[in-house]
Amino acid sequence: MSQTVRGVISRKKGLPVEVVDIVIPDPGPGEVVVDISACGVCHTDMTYRDGGINDDYPFLLGHEAAGTVEAVGPGVTAVEPGDFVILNWRAVCGQCRACKRGRPQYCFDTFNAEQKMTLTDGTELTPALGIGAFTDKTLVHSGQCTRIDPRADPAVAGLLGCGVMAGLGAAVNTAAVTRDDTVAVIGCGGVGDAAIAGSALVGAKRIIAVDTDNTKLEWARQFGATHTVNARDTDVVTAIQDLTGGFGADVVIDAVGRPETWTQAFYARDLAGTVVLVGVPTPDMRIDLPLLDFFSRGGALKSSWYGDCLPERDFPTLVDLYLQGRLPLEKFVSERIALDDIEEAFEKMHAGKVLRSVVVLS
């Protein structure tokens, strides 16, 4: 039997979000209803609100979530009622050409729930990233649920569902940072600080944080940055070269995703260094680069989508490291808020006042 719960929607571009009643259907084949405990407020949710993803309004916002499985549909075997899970937006299919080549992190046919959640008048909702977790309960595909240790704080664990995993994975999975590497991270919001935390976790010998905000640079030091560069005060490329004996960093991670920051990353790396783009650009952005400069530098230019993660592999391991005190995920939680506070949380995030506001539901 369907149930009615509270949820936060974006009804139309340019309007504030609303807390309304939404209808959650019983789970069908392969589907799961999850009772949401906590959900982080991510920049992607604000982008949905502002029409930067598509115009499939109304959106059910929220996706960085953890909660407890309440009910499962026919054929679900990976999770069962009572399991504590993190939700993800990359439920791999196992059958596409990427999966069959042993590269499931590039899956071309990821799963979402087939049924639609709706408003009480029957209007279908578009869940953010196929999740929609600014709500008491949500409906997802079972492959979007990764079981983790129930001792983890839901407000902390849920952040692995998007931004923290994206940044940490950019360092550990995409760039394959090692203990001998010097890493520079451009942009020290949630994703950039996660890249710093990941680099520190694997023992990078030098971690250079770059931002235009001294408060963010101080946050970066808390996650393991050994040096900081304020991009308002100095030339970023020169500063990174000065800190690396004139050579540049082994790995430069662009957590901003703008042509100017990517260009800084390109020229701030060592001749055989790696650039990783994890910040999300807009469709209109372009790079103008001399082809000879590309040819003469070697190394690797990579993009990192969701930190090249496999949730079933990465989430439990990272939660275990957090519980052991080896990964300071709790530092990403700037404040805990209610559903009614999300519009204000967007304003704080846009102003750079928080790493993550987290909605706590239970």
Rank of each mutant, 00 (worst) to 15 (best):
G7F: 00
V23S: 14
P27I: 11
G30R: 01
V34A: 08
G40Y: 00
C42I: 11
T44Y: 04
R49I: 00
G51C: 02
D56C: 06
Y57L: 03
P58R: 12
L61C: 10
A66E: 01
E70V: 10
G73Q: 11
G75M: 06
T77Q: 08
P81G: 10
I86V: 14
I86T: 08
W89I: 03
R90A: 02
Q95A: 05
Q105V: 03
T110S: 07
F111C: 03
N112F: 11
E114R: 08
Q115T: 08
Q115W: 04
L119Y: 07
T120Q: 09
T123W: 04
T126V: 14
A133P: 04
K137I: 13
T138R: 09
L139E: 12
L139W: 09
P150W: 14
V156C: 06
G158T: 05
G161S: 02
V177H: 11
T178S: 15
D181V: 08
T182N: 03
G187N: 08
G192H: 09
I196A: 14
G198K: 01
A200Q: 12
A200D: 13
L201V: 02
V202P: 12
G203E: 07
I208G: 01
T212H: 14
N214H: 15
L217S: 07
A220T: 11
R221W: 02
R221Q: 10
A225H: 09
V229A: 13
A231E: 10
Q241R: 15
L243Y: 02
G246I: 14
F247K: 13
A249D: 07
A249G: 07
A265W: 04
D270K: 14
L271T: 15
V275N: 01
G279H: 03
G279M: 06
T282F: 09
D284T: 15
K302M: 15
G307R: 13
L321Y: 05
R326A: 00
L327C: 06
P328W: 05
L329S: 07
L329F: 01
L329P: 00
L329V: 03
V333S: 08
D340R: 15
D340Y: 08
D341C: 13
E344Y: 03
F346H: 10
H350C: 08
S362Q: 12
